[in-house]
C-alpha cells in the first residue's frame, strides 16, 4: 500500500497519538467541579418561587454546562473552525424550527381544539 503514495502518507493513516494529540489538556478536575457547582445552582434555583426567574436561571445554567462539556471534555474548542460551524449549525436549524412553529402550535386559541 505504502508504495502507492507519492505524497508522504495521508493524514488518516498516521498512528495514534503521534500527530493528532494537538488539542489542549485542560484541568479536567476543575471543569468537573465547576459542572457540579452549576448543577447545585440549578437544584437550588428549582426551589425559587418566581417561575420566570427560575426557568431563566435553570436554562442558562444548562447552557453553560453544555458549553463546558462540549468545549473542554469534548475538545471542540481545539477542533478546526469548519467543524465548529457544522456543530453550531445544528443549533441554528433548531432555532429556526422553534421560531417558525411557535405561532402555529403555541399561540393558538385553545378552544379551537379542545372539545
Amino acid at each position: 500500500m505504502s508504495t502507492k503514495f507519492h505524497n508522504e502518507g495521508l493524514a488518516h493513516e498516521v498512528e495514534y497519538p503521534a500527530l493528532n494529540d494537538y488539542h489542549g489538556h485542560p484541568n479536567y478536575l476543575k471543569v468537573y467541579i465547576t459542572l457540579l457547582l452549576l448543577f447545585g445552582i440549578s437544584l437550588v434555583a428549582s426551589y425559587l418561587n418566581n417561575f420566570l426567574l427560575m426557568v431563566t436561571i435553570v436554562f442558562l445554567v444548562s447552557t453553560l454546562k453544555a458549553l463546558l462539556v462540549i468545549n473542554y471534555f469534548m475538545h471542540l474548542k481545539w477542533e478546526p473552525i469548519p467543524l465548529q460551524i457544522i456543530i453550531y449549525m445544528a443549533l441554528f436549524a433548531l432555532a429556526a424550527l422553534i421560531i417558525g412553529v411557535y405561532f402555529d402550535v403555541t399561540v393558538v386559541p385553545r378552544d379551537v381544539y379542545t372539545p
Binding site: L97, V101, D104, V105, T114
Partner: peptide, 10 residues
C-alpha cells in the same frame, strides 16, 4: 389529547 396535527406538518 393536546397534540397538534399542524406540528407534524411543520
Amino acid at each position: 389529547r393536546g397534540g397538534d396535527p399542524i406540528l407534524w406538518q411543520h
